[in-house]
Design a protein around this nucleic acid. Structure first.
Lengths: 223, 223
DNA sequence: GTCTATACGCCGATAGAC
DNA sequence: GTCTATCGGCGTATAGAC
């Protein structure tokens, strides 16, 4: 109780650095953002960033983790709730569990832009972060999607999942289509449209199970 | 005829810089690639890059333009050929005109990765380049797509076009889905899958005209 | 016209004083 | 926990060699 009390000064410094770094990373990207610019905006000494986070990469990891972790928890929670129902799921509800936590359950307002930017960085930067933060989410959702599209060859499904992630990243990066103004409603509409678009793309040529109001598209799978 | 002869030394230097820059930009991104690393790999003096291209941004523009220009010419050529036919086009043939030039007609083998990387850079870098290289292609193809999806509200179509571009960028960036090895065949398969996926996503809920073998998906447009 | 040497003010990181 | 001083490397610009 005595020596373990919180040090408000430290916590303040840490959070000010995280806030400043987040804004600058989103705007200019990781490599083009200097620790000096971050320190100036956060009104802390240059060396403080290195003391608290070890390196610029460590800072990026902390910036990202603080917002994405609760979203990924919510995603898994929703998927597990669906799977507990023991009926066969629809593609639509799986994708809602994946994408709606980006706008529901109070995610930080800067998370979408931050995700869009970080996923766009070179692989050397994204790889360790994505493996740490998304390994479980990606594996579980991909497995759930395989179950509702049992006739789709796995190599086709891999491509389609990949294409869906690309749509998501691009959508998060801009949060409104080119030529339109950003608004909270516009972004919500975009998430809905991302779900619709992904359902159509993933299920093309497949008979969707367990969803009587979704009709079938009988086109051949490829070629 | 006399003084206008080519200077091989100059041309060699310019091209060596372009080749070296291209490889390093793809691997590490724009901001993380130093002019010193480029000059070293190209075996030229540091200042040569500035002499030939004015700045690092100028170099990026030249690197990109030399490969994307012929591809965009081919795209427009194919679209114009389709439009000259004076029948109503299918979404599928429009998207083939847009995406097949990435694998047909001998585009440079490093173009896909280069496109994927450049489109992923922060907006301050991509904006002038995209406006210069893609303004006409984007406008013409979007107009062609509007024509074959006349009942789709324009704000929905904008979102879907945006989502399609995101899929393309992500696909070009990795050229094989996560967990698969790259091969030329794999990439070709990916372009085909991109076309299929985009046709399904763009036309969701719409009656496709002029394409009797494509069936209709009667789901509501959104929600 | 083509290229080189050099210099300026930034950068990320760190060692050590307080 | 914070700060100053300092390191080698960075993008860019330019003066002048050839």
């Amino acid at each position: 109780m005595s020596t373990k009390s919180v040090q408000p000064k430290n916590i303040d410094t840490r959070d000010r650095i995280l806030d400043a770094a987040e804004e600058l990373f989103v705007e200019h990207g990781f490599a083009a953002t200097s620790l000096r610019a971050i320190a100036t905006r956060a009104d802390v000494n240059l060396a403080a960033t290195n003391y608290h986070f070890g390196s610029k990469m460590g800072l990026l990891g902390s910036v990202f983790h603080r917002h994405i972790f609760p979203v990924n928890e919510e995603r898994l929670k929703r998927l597990k709730a669906l799977e507990r129902s023991e009926r066969s799921l629809t593609l639509n509800e799986i994708l809602e569990a994946l994408f709606l936590p980006l706008i529901e359950g109070l995610p930080h307002e800067r998370l979408p832009a931050l995700m869009g930017r970080i996923f766009s960085e070179p692989e050397s930067i994204t790889k360790p972060i994505i493996e740490k933060e998304f390994a479980e989410v990606a594996a579980r959702f991909q497995a759930a999607i395989v179950k509702v599209l049992p006739d789709l060859p796995i190599e086709i499904l891999r491509w389609r999942f990949h294409l869906m992630i690309g749509s998501m990243i691009h959508m998060l990066k801009f949060q409104s289509p080119i030529g339109s103004e950003y608004s909270r409603d516009m972004f919500t509409k975009g998430i809905e449209e991302l779900i619709n678009y992904s359902v159509a793309g993933l299920s093309r040529g497949q008979n969707l199970q367990g969803n009587p109001d979704q009709q079938v598209n009988h086109q051949e799978i490829s070629k």
